[in-house]
Amino acid sequence: MTGLRGTDEPLSALYDAALFDLDGVLYLQEDPIPQAPDGVAAARAAGMRIGFVTNNASRRAPTVVALLGRVGVKATEDEVVTAAQASAALLAEELPAGSAVLIVGAQGLADEVADVGLRPVRSADEKPAAVVQGFAKEVGWEQLAEAAVALRSGARWVATNRDFTIPSTRGPLPGNGSLVAVLTTALRREPDVIVGKPHPRLHQESVRRIGADRPLVVGDRLDTDIAGAVNGGADSLLVMTGVTDASGLLAARSGERPTYVAADLLSGLTEPHPAVPAGWTVTADGSGLVLGGAGSSLDALRALATAAWALPGADDDAWPGPSAVRADGAAAQEALDSLGL
Rank of each mutant, 00 (worst) to 15 (best):
V243I: 15
E77P: 03
L14C: 06
T76E: 14
A327R: 01
A335D: 11
G295Q: 02
S236T: 01
A314W: 09
I50N: 08
A57W: 02
A314G: 12
I210H: 06
D235M: 10
K74T: 15
L301G: 11
T281I: 05
I166Y: 06
W319R: 04
R44Q: 14
A335G: 13
H273R: 07
D21L: 04
N161G: 05
E79M: 12
A186G: 03
R214P: 06
L216K: 01
L14D: 07
N161E: 06
P322T: 13
A335Y: 10
F164P: 05
G321F: 02
A246E: 12
V81I: 15
A129E: 01
A89V: 08
A100C: 12
T160C: 15
R214L: 13
A307K: 01
D125N: 12
G228F: 04
R188Q: 15
R189V: 08
Y27M: 14
R326K: 10
L339D: 09
M48L: 15
G39D: 01
L179W: 00
A148S: 09
V282K: 05
V116N: 09
A147M: 08
L183K: 08
S247N: 13
R70W: 06
P191C: 07
L68R: 07
R221W: 10
L249F: 06
R60M: 09
F135Q: 03
L250A: 11
R70K: 15
D38N: 09
L238T: 12
I33A: 04
G340Y: 03
D38A: 15
A305M: 02
D328V: 03
G175F: 03
L102W: 04
V195D: 04
D299Q: 12
R5A: 14
Q85M: 12
P274D: 08
I103S: 03
D316S: 14
L265K: 00
A36G: 11
V193I: 14
G47P: 09
E205N: 02
A229F: 00
L68P: 11
E126H: 15
P272K: 12
T63M: 14
T270C: 10
A124K: 13
V261R: 00
A332F: 04
W280Y: 01
R201M: 10
V132F: 09
V230C: 06
S123F: 04
L4H: 10
Q333A: 15
P62Y: 10
A18W: 00
I33P: 04
A88C: 13
F52M: 11
Q29P: 00
D315E: 05
L339C: 06
V218C: 06
E94W: 08
S323W: 09
A84G: 15
E79A: 05
L187V: 03
V243A: 07
G175D: 06
R152D: 15
D220W: 01
